[in-house]
């Protein structure tokens, strides 16, 4: 709720995406503009969702923000600093299957922490996240022995233990069934409420975007452009069947369908 207060212009410059374009030559040597002239900013502690049809460049944009890819034009800054490569201060949760299959759930969650803190890393923090992610009893299992929902919660925990300034979520619930998805959505919501981590969520699920985010950035394809940024000021926690919720959904659907 507190993060709501930062909306409205006065502190909208924590993350700044300025004139970002990604242009590549594909395998056939064809020039391809994947995303074109993207501009927006995100406030500290804000929750922003990216929606748009498949292939419109959401992942491409998120990768540029993370520093995994660099844009051909424009730049992205976080707290005034230009992003050029990935960093532990920017967590990235992949759509699926990014856990190391040869490490147990506990080892996976602790892997970043161990990389940063060395051998004597904070095991208690790992235990804490095992607890809040509901992974107790499965910490010594390997990723292919747990459900998809558990694996995604573990991937989420692996990024969160590093206490990132910015968490980038690339359809982390996309491959989950409806029940498990709501489950993970609630965990993301709870963590955002508690830690006030700035989050950008890519999703193709309109309800998910409305349920979680304060603003929703709608993209159009070929090339990927920002169509509209929709403010979503419903009070938290949101009710999926409230009339305001349904109204917001209708509005978004109109924007998405409008050619």
């Amino acid at each position: 709720m507190a993060a709501n207060g930062k909306l409205g212009g006065e502190n909208l410059a924590f993350l700044e995406v300025k004139d970002v374009s990604r242009e590549i030559f594909n395998n056939n040597g064809k020039y391809l503009k994947i995303i074109d002239d993207i501009n927006f900013s995100v406030a500290d502690g804000e929750f922003l969702s990216l929606i748009g049809p498949s292939g419109c460049g959401k992942t491409t944009l998120l990768r540029v923000i993370s520093g995994l890819d660099n844009p051909e034009k424009g730049e992205v800054t976080l707290a005034g600093e230009k992003i050029v490569k990935p960093s532990v201060s920017r967590g990235y949760v992949f759509q699926h299957g990014s856990l190391y299959p040869w490490e147990t759930i506990r080892q996976n969650i602790g892997s970043g922490l161990q990389a940063v803190q060395g051998k004597k890393f904070d095991q208690k923090l790992v235990d804490h996240f095992i607890e809040i992610m509901g992974l107790k009893g499965f910490e010594d299992a390997y990723p292919n022995q747990v459900s998809g929902g558990m694996a995604q919660r573990a991937a989420l925990a692996r990024s969160l233990v590093l206490n990132p300034q910015l968490l980038l979520l690339d359809e982390p619930m996309g491959a989950l069934d409806a029940f498990t998805r709501v489950d993970v959505q609630n965990i993301v919501y709870k963590i955002w409420q508690e830690k006030k981590t700035t989050m950008i969520l890519v999703t193709h699920d309109i309800d998910e975007a409305i349920y979680l985010s304060q603003r929703i950035l709608v993209m159009t394809p070929h090339p990927g452009r920002v169509k509209e940024i929709v403010r979503n000021d419903l009070p938290f926690p949101r009710k999926r069947d409230s009339s305001e919720f349904l109204e917001t959904r209708k509005r978004l659907q109109q924007i998405l369908n409008f050619k």
Partner: peptide, 28 residues
């Protein structure tokens, strides 16, 4: 999988750690 390396970059892995924790177990 390239994703394993990309995840490692966002998790602060050094090259030495990438070899130890991803390359060797992944190639085993």
């Amino acid at each position: 999988l390239p994703t394993y390396f990309e995840a490692a970059y966002t998790l602060g892995f050094s090259e030495h750690r990438i070899i130890q924790k991803i390359v060797i177990p992944g190639a085993l």
